[in-house]
Nucleic acid binder design. Structure first.
Lengths: 215, 215
DNA sequence: TAGATTGTTAATCGATTAACAATC
DNA sequence: TAGATTGTTAATCGATTAACAATC
């Protein structure tokens, strides 16, 4: 128990993910080193922010030189856990579900769609990306048996809470919710929303503000 | 110039959007009044937060009674600007673009896809939601002519910056970027990212932390 | 060595929450 | 009136940034 367990901000985790993408780009260009300044410019954050974020996890740089692109890249991958393969359950294979399933960054980043569920009889049993779509009734059993920890919800708002309950029941720990609905889950569950309405309404708000404040 | 122009936090705008959805739900149930407490519970925030957020824009409640659902709903819609019709340009009509185009909440919330662009010869000229897909070369002219202010980028990472530049050139003020790439735009442009990789990596990070901190 | 850039502390900034008088 | 709940100020909390000694 000598470990001091500092809580790491969510925003730091998100920025690490952005740094990682920048580092991947630099690695393609065979760049040797990168400074917190350059990385901050890429991510759109203050260089001190970059150093602070990294400092949560150790000392990865060399004073006067910056960071080794290759080393920092694999360090951050390790920190984010993308050096391991996470199984993901996809709930709902409508337009959005299909688009998500087709996303190439998926496997590349160490995520693997391991199970797909839908209520539509016409879809059940048919393969998507080599995986047969299962009926919703199988959800609890499959997720439990396969030890899946991450779920993506891509279904209509009405059933989102119900499905979330089932997922939690089955041992899911992280939920990425694309349904336009707020859902409630136990505190130990990590829940993130991707919400087109909210995004668009934020933009709309900005436009109304331009008028009011003349930015 | 008697107006004191307080800068309103982005997070407030986002929460307003969430309150609005909650109010729409309550309106369906013909609920008369709602308290900051109930609204906060729905949105997952502190009741003081709700009152603070609203207080930026005026006094909408009645002490001892709470807020009129109907009135607050239309007030927030007015604040967010969803009581007017915003034209949106959709760039890229691949899997994701199609899923976005199919999203029903679009018109409902006062957004209207007014133009769609793609580079793929096979898609150009064909209608999506009654709108003919245009070649990318038309982007500047169409966006300028139609006075479109909001753009959604749903294309591969490589071309995202190039397209963003063209959009800014054409007078776009808000960009919602689904491409897995950082882009840079002038400061007066509102830029928001929706990034599946970052979302997933945040979840992955949480899972690795559970091990480390045993949450 | 001189120049560059890290790691880290202290200062600043902004957002959230608690508390309570006002008032329905 | 008593109870409930707002609107708002003050206190707290946490995240960002500035600054600089350490050091390559």
């Amino acid at each position: 128990m000598t470990n001091k367990t500092v809580k790491i901000p969510e925003s730091t985790a998100q920025r690490l993910s952005i740094y990682l993408r920048g580092l991947a780009l630099l690695a393609e260009n065979v760049t040797e080193n990168v400074s917190s300044n350059e990385l901050g410019e890429y991510a759109g954050v203050n260089p001190a922010q970059v150093r602070k974020d990294l400092a949560y996890f150790g000392q990865f740089g060399i004073r006067g030189q910056g960071y080794s692109v290759q080393e920092l890249k694999s360090r951050i991958a390790g920190i984010l856990g993308t050096d391991q393969a996470w199984k993901v359950a996809l709930i709902g294979i409508g337009n959005l579900g299909k688009a998500l399933a087709a996303y190439k960054g998926f496997d590349k980043q160490g995520f693997q769609i391991a199970a797909i569920f839908d209520t539509d009889e016409k879809k059940i049993g048919k393969p998507i990306r080599g995986i047969n779509v299962q009926p919703m009734q199988e959800l609890t059993k499959t997720v439990t048996d396969m030890d899946i920890r991450i779920a993506i919800i891509a279904i209509p708002a009405e059933t989102a809470q119900h499905v979330a309950d089932a997922l939690v029941q089955a041992g899911i720990l992280c939920i990425l919710n694309f349904a336009p609905a707020r859902i409630s889950v136990p505190k130990h569950i990590k829940l993130r929303y991707v919400d087109l309405s909210t995004e668009l309404e934020s933009l709309s708000f900005y436009l109304t503000q331009i008028g009011r404040l003349n930015i």
